[in-house]
Amino acid sequence: MTVKLTVENALQAKEEIEKLETQGYSKDHIHIFAHFKERADDINDALDTSDVGMKEQGFLESMKNLFTSRGDELRSKMESVGLSKEEAATAEAELDKGKLVIIAHKPA
């Protein structure tokens, strides 16, 4: 099951992550997205959550993202952890407004 949440800041993200952990989600399967990569990296580091990488996306998709726009990269990563194309596009629009998107999934 994949859960998508939108929050305003890192404090709200921390609260939501704690709730997700009580529901059985592992921090290895909780991902925080921000429009700016540095912000996402800082928040993932601070909250000990996971960035979407080769494990979730696969080698070819990860390499492709090196040459695409940030928006395309974010949508691709969100799709690789369980969102549909439409959900990823909607979530990316929220990122454009400065919000954070949290996606949690349980491995199959």
Rank of each mutant, 00 (worst) to 15 (best):
residue 2 T to K: 15
residue 2 T to C: 09
residue 2 T to I: 15
residue 4 K to N: 11
residue 4 K to C: 09
residue 5 L to F: 07
residue 7 V to C: 07
residue 8 E to D: 12
residue 8 E to P: 00
residue 9 N to K: 06
residue 10 A to I: 04
residue 11 L to E: 11
residue 11 L to I: 07
residue 15 E to L: 07
residue 15 E to H: 09
residue 16 E to V: 09
residue 17 I to Q: 00
residue 17 I to N: 00
residue 17 I to H: 00
residue 18 E to I: 03
residue 19 K to D: 06
residue 20 L to T: 13
residue 21 E to L: 11
residue 22 T to N: 11
residue 22 T to K: 15
residue 22 T to Y: 05
residue 23 Q to M: 13
residue 25 Y to W: 01
residue 25 Y to R: 03
residue 27 K to G: 03
residue 28 D to A: 13
residue 30 I to V: 12
residue 31 H to Q: 05
residue 31 H to A: 09
residue 31 H to R: 03
residue 32 I to Y: 10
residue 33 F to V: 01
residue 33 F to T: 01
residue 33 F to H: 01
residue 33 F to I: 02
residue 33 F to Y: 10
residue 34 A to K: 11
residue 34 A to P: 06
residue 35 H to E: 05
residue 37 K to N: 03
residue 37 K to Y: 05
residue 37 K to G: 00
residue 39 R to I: 04
residue 39 R to S: 08
residue 39 R to M: 02
residue 40 A to T: 00
residue 40 A to D: 01
residue 41 D to K: 14
residue 42 D to N: 10
residue 43 I to P: 02
residue 44 N to K: 10
residue 45 D to P: 00
residue 45 D to I: 09
residue 46 A to P: 01
residue 47 L to Y: 03
residue 48 D to F: 05
residue 49 T to H: 02
residue 49 T to D: 04
residue 51 D to H: 08
residue 51 D to L: 13
residue 53 G to A: 08
residue 53 G to F: 14
residue 54 M to F: 11
residue 55 K to D: 12
residue 55 K to R: 14
residue 56 E to F: 12
residue 56 E to I: 14
residue 57 Q to E: 14
residue 57 Q to N: 12
residue 58 G to K: 08
residue 59 F to I: 09
residue 59 F to P: 02
residue 60 L to H: 01
residue 61 E to A: 14
residue 64 K to W: 13
residue 66 L to K: 09
residue 66 L to P: 00
residue 67 F to I: 07
residue 67 F to G: 02
residue 68 T to K: 06
residue 70 R to H: 05
residue 71 G to D: 07
residue 72 D to Q: 14
residue 73 E to S: 15
residue 74 L to I: 07
residue 74 L to N: 01
residue 74 L to W: 01
residue 75 R to A: 07
residue 76 S to G: 10
residue 77 K to L: 07
residue 77 K to F: 04
residue 78 M to Y: 04
residue 80 S to W: 04
residue 81 V to D: 01
residue 81 V to I: 15
residue 82 G to V: 02
residue 84 S to K: 12
residue 85 K to E: 11
residue 85 K to R: 11
residue 85 K to D: 06
residue 86 E to K: 09
residue 89 A to V: 03
residue 90 T to H: 13
residue 91 A to D: 10
residue 91 A to P: 12
residue 92 E to K: 10
residue 94 E to A: 15
residue 96 D to G: 14
residue 96 D to Q: 14
residue 96 D to T: 00
residue 97 K to L: 10
residue 98 G to L: 00
residue 99 K to N: 13
residue 99 K to G: 09
residue 99 K to R: 11
residue 100 L to K: 08
residue 100 L to W: 06
residue 101 V to F: 03
residue 102 I to M: 11
residue 106 K to D: 03
residue 107 P to W: 04
